[in-house]
Amino acid sequence: MKIAALSDIHGNLPALEAVFDDIERQGADVIVNLGDILSGPLYPSQTADRLMRLGLPTIRGNHERQLLGADGTHMGPSDRFARGVLSEEQLAWVGALPATLWLESDVLLVHGTPQDDLSYFLETVTASGCRTATHSEVRRRAAEVEAALILCCHTHLARSMQLADGRLIVNPGSVGLPAYEDAHPFAHRMESGTPHARYASVTRTLRGWEVEFRAVEYDWHAAAERAASNGRPDWAAALRTGYC
Protein backbone atom coordinates (compact mmCIF):
# COMPACT_ATOMS: atom_id res chain seq x y z
CA MET A 1 0.00 0.00 0.00
CA LYS A 2 1.32 3.42 -0.99
CA ILE A 3 -0.22 6.52 0.61
CA ALA A 4 0.26 10.06 -0.69
CA ALA A 5 -0.24 12.28 2.37
CA LEU A 6 -1.20 15.92 1.81
CA SER A 7 -1.69 18.61 4.43
CA ASP A 8 -1.98 22.34 5.02
CA ILE A 9 -3.11 23.18 1.49
CA HIS A 10 -4.47 26.54 2.66
CA GLY A 11 -6.35 27.24 -0.56
CA ASN A 12 -3.21 27.14 -2.71
CA LEU A 13 -4.78 25.48 -5.73
CA PRO A 14 -1.77 25.85 -8.10
CA ALA A 15 0.46 24.12 -5.55
CA LEU A 16 -2.16 21.40 -5.07
CA GLU A 17 -2.44 20.77 -8.81
CA ALA A 18 1.35 20.48 -9.08
CA VAL A 19 1.32 17.94 -6.24
CA PHE A 20 -1.46 15.96 -7.92
CA ASP A 21 0.63 15.87 -11.11
CA ASP A 22 3.63 14.58 -9.16
CA ILE A 23 1.50 11.93 -7.44
CA GLU A 24 0.25 10.76 -10.82
CA ARG A 25 3.85 10.32 -11.97
CA GLN A 26 5.01 8.65 -8.76
CA GLY A 27 1.91 6.53 -8.19
CA ALA A 28 -0.22 6.06 -5.08
CA ASP A 29 -2.98 3.71 -3.97
CA VAL A 30 -4.71 6.39 -1.95
CA ILE A 31 -4.35 10.13 -1.36
CA VAL A 32 -5.23 11.47 2.09
CA ASN A 33 -5.82 15.06 3.20
CA LEU A 34 -4.87 15.96 6.78
CA GLY A 35 -6.59 19.32 7.14
CA ASP A 36 -6.09 23.11 7.08
CA ILE A 37 -7.44 22.96 3.58
CA LEU A 38 -8.89 26.33 2.60
CA SER A 39 -7.96 29.22 4.90
CA GLY A 40 -5.81 31.90 3.34
CA PRO A 41 -5.83 34.67 0.71
CA LEU A 42 -5.49 32.46 -2.38
CA TYR A 43 -8.22 30.19 -3.86
CA PRO A 44 -10.39 28.81 -1.03
CA SER A 45 -13.58 28.27 -3.03
CA GLN A 46 -11.86 26.77 -6.07
CA THR A 47 -9.81 24.47 -3.83
CA ALA A 48 -12.97 23.30 -2.06
CA ASP A 49 -14.65 22.52 -5.38
CA ARG A 50 -11.63 20.53 -6.56
CA LEU A 51 -11.43 18.43 -3.43
CA MET A 52 -15.15 17.91 -2.97
CA ARG A 53 -15.30 16.27 -6.39
CA LEU A 54 -12.45 13.90 -5.52
CA GLY A 55 -13.84 12.64 -2.22
CA LEU A 56 -10.44 11.86 -0.71
CA PRO A 57 -10.17 10.51 2.84
CA THR A 58 -10.02 13.87 4.62
CA ILE A 59 -9.95 15.19 8.17
CA ARG A 60 -10.46 18.71 9.43
CA GLY A 61 -7.73 20.85 10.93
CA ASN A 62 -7.92 23.71 13.38
CA HIS A 63 -8.68 26.13 10.54
CA GLU A 64 -11.71 24.11 9.44
CA ARG A 65 -12.97 24.23 13.01
CA GLN A 66 -12.32 27.97 13.17
CA LEU A 67 -14.05 28.58 9.83
CA LEU A 68 -17.28 27.30 11.31
CA GLY A 69 -17.19 29.73 14.22
CA ALA A 70 -20.38 31.74 14.59
CA ASP A 71 -18.76 35.18 14.77
CA GLY A 72 -16.57 36.04 11.80
CA THR A 73 -15.34 39.24 13.48
CA HIS A 74 -13.21 37.16 15.84
CA MET A 75 -11.57 35.14 13.07
CA GLY A 76 -8.01 35.67 11.92
CA PRO A 77 -7.53 37.18 8.45
CA SER A 78 -6.92 33.82 6.73
CA ASP A 79 -10.13 32.28 8.07
CA ARG A 80 -12.09 35.49 7.46
CA PHE A 81 -11.04 35.63 3.80
CA ALA A 82 -12.02 32.01 3.22
CA ARG A 83 -15.32 32.31 5.08
CA GLY A 84 -16.22 35.30 2.92
CA VAL A 85 -16.00 33.38 -0.35
CA LEU A 86 -17.13 29.84 0.57
CA SER A 87 -20.63 28.73 -0.33
CA GLU A 88 -23.07 27.10 2.07
CA GLU A 89 -22.47 23.79 0.31
CA GLN A 90 -18.72 24.14 0.79
CA LEU A 91 -19.13 25.06 4.45
CA ALA A 92 -21.38 22.04 4.93
CA TRP A 93 -18.62 19.84 3.47
CA VAL A 94 -16.14 21.38 5.91
CA GLY A 95 -18.55 20.83 8.78
CA ALA A 96 -18.93 17.13 8.00
CA LEU A 97 -15.20 16.35 8.15
CA PRO A 98 -14.05 14.19 11.08
CA ALA A 99 -11.34 15.31 13.51
CA THR A 100 -9.40 12.05 13.08
CA LEU A 101 -9.78 9.04 10.81
CA TRP A 102 -8.56 5.45 10.77
CA LEU A 103 -7.53 4.77 7.18
CA GLU A 104 -6.79 1.15 8.01
CA SER A 105 -6.71 -0.75 11.29
CA ASP A 106 -3.11 0.42 11.88
CA VAL A 107 -3.06 3.80 10.10
CA LEU A 108 -4.40 6.87 11.89
CA LEU A 109 -4.87 10.36 10.40
CA VAL A 110 -4.67 13.31 12.81
CA HIS A 111 -4.08 17.02 12.34
CA GLY A 112 -2.02 17.99 15.39
CA THR A 113 -1.91 15.07 17.81
CA PRO A 114 -4.50 12.34 18.45
CA GLN A 115 -5.91 14.49 21.25
CA ASP A 116 -5.72 18.06 19.93
CA ASP A 117 -5.71 19.81 16.55
CA LEU A 118 -3.57 22.70 17.86
CA SER A 119 -0.74 20.75 19.49
CA TYR A 120 2.51 20.06 17.67
CA PHE A 121 3.47 16.38 17.45
CA LEU A 122 7.08 16.36 16.22
CA GLU A 123 8.10 19.87 17.35
CA THR A 124 8.20 21.57 20.75
CA VAL A 125 7.84 25.31 21.29
CA THR A 126 9.58 26.95 24.23
CA ALA A 127 10.33 30.54 25.21
CA SER A 128 13.52 30.17 23.14
CA GLY A 129 11.66 29.19 19.97
CA CYS A 130 10.86 25.93 18.21
CA ARG A 131 12.93 22.75 18.26
CA THR A 132 12.54 19.13 17.19
CA ALA A 133 10.63 17.16 19.81
CA THR A 134 12.44 14.48 21.77
CA HIS A 135 11.49 10.82 21.51
CA SER A 136 10.02 10.91 25.01
CA GLU A 137 7.87 13.95 24.12
CA VAL A 138 6.59 12.29 20.95
CA ARG A 139 5.94 9.00 22.77
CA ARG A 140 3.89 10.87 25.37
CA ARG A 141 1.86 12.62 22.64
CA ALA A 142 1.26 9.34 20.81
CA ALA A 143 -0.04 7.96 24.13
CA GLU A 144 -1.60 4.51 23.82
CA VAL A 145 -2.70 4.86 20.18
CA GLU A 146 -2.23 1.44 18.61
CA ALA A 147 -1.26 2.51 15.11
CA ALA A 148 1.84 1.44 13.22
CA LEU A 149 1.61 4.68 11.23
CA ILE A 150 0.30 8.04 12.44
CA LEU A 151 0.04 10.78 9.81
CA CYS A 152 -0.02 14.28 11.28
CA CYS A 153 0.61 17.84 10.12
CA HIS A 154 -0.15 21.38 11.44
CA THR A 155 3.47 22.60 11.69
CA HIS A 156 4.06 22.75 7.90
CA LEU A 157 7.44 21.03 8.39
CA ALA A 158 8.23 17.72 6.68
CA ARG A 159 9.54 15.37 9.33
CA SER A 160 9.22 11.81 10.62
CA MET A 161 10.14 9.95 13.78
CA GLN A 162 10.06 6.25 14.59
CA LEU A 163 9.53 5.34 18.22
CA ALA A 164 11.26 2.47 19.98
CA ASP A 165 8.03 0.45 19.84
CA GLY A 166 8.06 0.70 16.03
CA ARG A 167 5.32 3.30 15.59
CA LEU A 168 6.13 5.77 12.80
CA ILE A 169 4.86 9.36 12.95
CA VAL A 170 5.02 11.30 9.68
CA ASN A 171 4.35 14.97 8.97
CA PRO A 172 4.32 15.50 5.18
CA GLY A 173 4.91 19.26 5.32
CA SER A 174 2.66 21.84 3.72
CA VAL A 175 1.31 21.78 0.18
CA GLY A 176 0.39 25.44 0.19
CA LEU A 177 2.24 27.57 2.76
CA PRO A 178 5.96 26.93 3.44
CA ALA A 179 6.35 29.30 6.41
CA TYR A 180 4.32 31.09 9.08
CA GLU A 181 4.62 32.86 12.42
CA ASP A 182 2.61 32.13 15.55
CA ALA A 183 2.43 33.66 19.01
CA HIS A 184 1.27 30.63 21.00
CA PRO A 185 2.36 29.23 23.36
CA PHE A 186 5.39 31.47 22.71
CA ALA A 187 6.35 33.52 19.68
CA HIS A 188 7.94 31.27 17.05
CA ARG A 189 8.43 30.77 13.33
CA MET A 190 7.92 27.64 11.27
CA GLU A 191 10.00 27.86 8.09
CA SER A 192 10.67 25.14 5.52
CA GLY A 193 13.37 27.22 3.83
CA THR A 194 12.15 26.76 0.24
CA PRO A 195 8.97 27.74 -1.62
CA HIS A 196 8.22 24.22 -2.87
CA ALA A 197 4.89 22.46 -2.39
CA ARG A 198 5.46 19.47 -0.15
CA TYR A 199 3.86 16.11 0.52
CA ALA A 200 4.92 12.63 1.63
CA SER A 201 4.73 9.23 -0.02
CA VAL A 202 4.46 6.48 2.61
CA THR A 203 4.71 2.84 1.53
CA ARG A 204 4.02 -0.37 3.43
CA THR A 205 6.86 -2.84 2.83
CA LEU A 206 7.95 -6.15 4.32
CA ARG A 207 10.23 -4.13 6.62
CA GLY A 208 7.42 -1.81 7.72
CA TRP A 209 6.40 1.67 6.62
CA GLU A 210 8.89 3.72 4.61
CA VAL A 211 8.54 7.44 3.90
CA GLU A 212 9.72 9.64 1.04
CA PHE A 213 9.32 13.40 1.29
CA ARG A 214 8.55 15.16 -1.98
CA ALA A 215 9.23 18.83 -2.86
CA VAL A 216 7.39 20.03 -5.97
CA GLU A 217 7.92 23.12 -8.08
CA TYR A 218 5.01 25.32 -9.15
CA ASP A 219 4.54 29.01 -9.95
CA TRP A 220 4.96 30.35 -6.42
CA HIS A 221 5.60 33.86 -7.71
CA ALA A 222 2.07 34.00 -9.13
CA ALA A 223 0.71 32.66 -5.84
CA ALA A 224 2.65 35.34 -3.96
CA GLU A 225 1.25 38.04 -6.21
CA ARG A 226 -2.27 36.81 -5.53
CA ALA A 227 -1.63 36.90 -1.78
CA ALA A 228 -0.23 40.42 -2.00
CA SER A 229 -3.19 41.62 -4.07
CA ASN A 230 -5.49 40.26 -1.34
CA GLY A 231 -3.71 42.23 1.34
CA ARG A 232 -1.31 39.62 2.71
CA PRO A 233 2.31 40.67 2.17
CA ASP A 234 3.31 38.20 4.93
CA TRP A 235 1.97 35.34 2.84
CA ALA A 236 3.62 36.74 -0.28
CA ALA A 237 7.03 36.67 1.39
CA ALA A 238 6.52 33.15 2.74
CA LEU A 239 5.31 31.81 -0.60
CA ARG A 240 8.28 33.25 -2.48
CA THR A 241 11.00 32.18 -0.08
CA GLY A 242 9.90 29.59 2.47
CA TYR A 243 10.81 32.05 5.20
CA CYS A 244 8.79 34.56 7.21
Results as ranks from 00 to 15, higher is better:
Y120G: 00
T73E: 15
M52L: 14
I59V: 05
L122K: 01
S87Y: 01
R131L: 05
A148W: 11
D49H: 07
R53I: 12
D117H: 04
D79P: 01
T113V: 07
L157Y: 05
I59M: 06
S119P: 00
L103P: 02
G95I: 08
A127E: 15
T132Q: 14
H111D: 01
D49N: 04
R50Y: 14
L149Q: 02
R83D: 04
A143W: 12
A143I: 12
L56H: 14
G69Y: 13
F121N: 00
L103I: 08
V110R: 02
L118V: 13
G129W: 15
L68S: 04
E144I: 11
D49C: 06
R80D: 03
R131E: 15
L118K: 13
P98Y: 07
D71T: 10
D71K: 11
Q66I: 15
L67C: 06
L108F: 00
T155M: 09
V110M: 02
S78D: 14
R50M: 08
H156P: 02
T113W: 01
T73D: 14
D116G: 06
T134M: 01
C153E: 08
L56V: 11
E146G: 03
C130D: 00
G112H: 07
H74K: 13
E88N: 10
W93T: 02
T58Q: 13
S105M: 01
E89M: 03
L101K: 04
R60P: 00
P114N: 08
L97I: 09
G61C: 04
W102L: 03
I59L: 05
S105K: 09
P57W: 09
V138S: 01
R50H: 14
Y120Q: 01
L118Q: 13
G95R: 06
L56Y: 14
D49Y: 03
A127K: 13
P77G: 03
G84T: 12
E123Q: 10
G95S: 09
D79H: 13
G112D: 03
A92H: 03
L118T: 09
A70I: 08
Q66A: 15
C152E: 09
P57K: 04
Q90W: 04
E137P: 05
H154I: 10
S78H: 15
G55C: 08
A99G: 10
D106Y: 05
S119T: 11
C152I: 04
A70R: 15
P98W: 08
T113P: 00
L67K: 04
I59E: 07
R60S: 07
Y120T: 03
A92F: 00
E104I: 05
F121I: 02
R141S: 06
L108I: 06
L67F: 02
G72H: 11
R60G: 09
V107F: 02
V107T: 13
E137G: 12
P114A: 11
L108R: 03
